[in-house]
């Protein structure tokens, strides 16, 4: 069973996870994915920011899909691909994060937790 890695809002505000502050891509001029209260309309933007963070730090692509039966429709994230088999991590019944190289992303658990938190708060517009 997949390990649950939710980070509570309190934890995020008092002890932010390392990945929130370790990268310049999440500059103070832009709302951090960890510290903002994302509105539904900004959710795709937030997911794109996570993808950019992963690309910049790990040189790895991730993208996000909406699940409808067999169909997994792209909603946000990278459009590039490394040609390795896609591996899905289910965020909930409706959404999944996909990458070809999760093993390169050492902060995978924290990233997935953040995405889970984002998606538990909002629905895709």
């Amino acid at each position: 069973m997949e390990k649950e890695t939710y980070i509570s809002k309190e934890t995020l505000h008092s002890e932010p996870s390392p990945f929130c502050h370790s990268e310049p891509s999440f500059s103070h001029s832009e709302p951090s994915i960890c510290h903002s209260e994302p509105k539904a309309k900004n959710l795709l933007l937030e997911l794109n920011k996570i993808a950019e963070f992963v690309k910049e730090k790990y040189n790895t692509h991730i993208w996000f899909v909406e699940i409808m039966g067999k169909r997994h429709s792209y909603i946000a994230g990278h459009k590039e691909d490394s040609f390795l088999p896609p591996e899905l991590i289910y965020i909930n019944d409706r959404y999944a994060a996909v990458s070809n190289e999760w093993e390169r992303i050492t902060e995978k658990d924290e990233i997935i937790s953040t995405i889970k938190m984002l998606l538990s708060k909002e629905t895709i517009p």
């Binding site: 993208w63 996000f64 899909v65 067999k70 169909r71 997994h72 429709s73 792209y74 909603i75 459009k79 590039e80 691909d81 040609f83 896609p86 899905l88 996909v98």
Partner: peptide, 24 residues
């Protein structure tokens, strides 16, 4: 495979236009 792992919509468009989909 494509529509079961998010190679849909504008993502597949991007892969098709760049010639990368041919590898898949």
């Amino acid at each position: 495979a494509g529509y079961r792992c998010g190679r849909t919509g504008d993502r597949i468009m991007s892969l098709l236009k760049s010639g990368k989909e041919a590898i898949f």
